[in-house]
């Protein structure tokens, strides 16, 4: 049953099947290539579209392999977040002591799912380059395809775990707001956060393998300085004024608060200027990550 589920999910997400399907013949490389010492490449959507077949196949590989030979298979995509939600939800409700425990619980659940999306994108992207060194040291293709494909895999896990949120949402009797249509934007923002920072670390990882120890520590620490277990309100009310700005330099503050605002409406966003700061930091990290990646991309093979 898991197998079928796995299969259909992969069709759903990667739109395409392994079985033959007619399509247009495309040539992947230009008919004229010029290689010289100074040529450099930069992020280009055209190139990514050209290699989308590879992108899909790499993502499909990672996804299929992830739950192979696991008894519970894809159920792990549900079990892992579920345990986190139960533990941290319980802690949050106990400490907040709020009257509306159910709402508090759903609130924490939404933040945890988003944080897990961020942490898995961040972690997987930062390890993706060295993990696929055997590929790009043998065959040429745009290396950005590798981290992009890991995002697709993290997204599948995320969508599966969204089932938990939907169930909790209904059980706790929440009402829908119009803002819900904006929710995908904040999911995208979360991915971009993980992608930007992850690319930066993926580049460092090529030369310094310390990254594989640093990233888990950052993820763990980051969770306690982001509005995951407690809301932004909870933190800011307890922090001195000067520390507010520092708190908001965390790009995940904007993403999580925005996502909560879409789901529950109301005052999830503490202060719009803090929110905007956080958004700016997100894009700054993304630009730095991409620039840094492309600066060294061509020489990865020599350092791996």
């Amino acid at each position: 049953m898991y197998r079928e589920f796995l299969y259909f999910t992969s069709i759903f997400v990667f739109h395409g099947k392994f079985c033959p399907k007619p399509g247009k013949v495309k040539f992947l490389s230009e008919t004229k290539i010029i290689i010289d010492a100074n040529s450099s490449s930069f992020f280009s959507l055209k190139e990514i579209v050209r290699y989308k077949n590879l992108l899909n196949n790499l993502a499909r590989r990672d996804f299929l392999v992830r739950y192979k030979q696991a008894f519970a298979g894809i159920m792990w995509a549900l079990i892992k977040p579920l345990i986190n939600i139960l533990v941290f939800g319980y802690i949050s409700v106990k400490i907040n002591g709020s009257a509306d425990a159910a709402t508090n619980f759903v609130d924490v659940a939404s933040a945890i799912l988003l944080w897990q999306l961020f942490s898995s994108v961040f972690n997987d992207v930062s390890n993706s380059i060295i993990g696929n060194a055997n590929l790009f040291s043998k065959v040429f293709f745009p290396k950005i395809i590798i981290p992009l494909s890991t995002i697709l895999v993290c997204l599948v896990d995320f969508f599966i775990s969204l089932i938990i949120l939907v169930v909790l949402f209904i059980l706790s009797g929440q009402s829908l707001h119009w803002q819900i249509v904006l929710a995908p934007l904040f999911i995208l923002l979360t991915i971009l956060n993980g992608f930007g920072i992850g690319l930066y670390f993926a580049t460092i990882n090529v030369k310094y393998r310390d990254v594989k120890f640093i990233v888990p520590v950052m993820v763990q620490f980051g969770m306690y300085v982001s509005p995951v277990i407690f809301s932004t309100h909870y933190y800011l009310e307890r922090l001195p004024q000067w520390a507010h700005w520092i708190f908001c330099l965390n790009p995940m503050v904007g993403a999580i608060d925005g996502f909560k605002y879409c789901l529950f409406g109301g005052d999830a966003i503490y202060n719009s200027s803090y929110f905007i700061v956080s958004l700016c930091v997100s894009f700054l990290f993304l630009i730095i990550g991409i620039k840094y990646f492309y600066k060294f991309e061509r020489n990865f093979v020599d350092y791996i």
């Binding site: 490389s29 004229k32 290689i35 043998k138």
Partner: peptide
């Protein structure tokens, strides 16, 4: 095959290359 860049020089390739 474009796996590693040259330090000097220039290459022109006419056609699709596979390594």
């Amino acid at each position: 095959s474009q796996i590693t860049p040259p330090t000097k020089g220039r290459i022109e390739i006419n056609g699709r290359i596979a390594s």
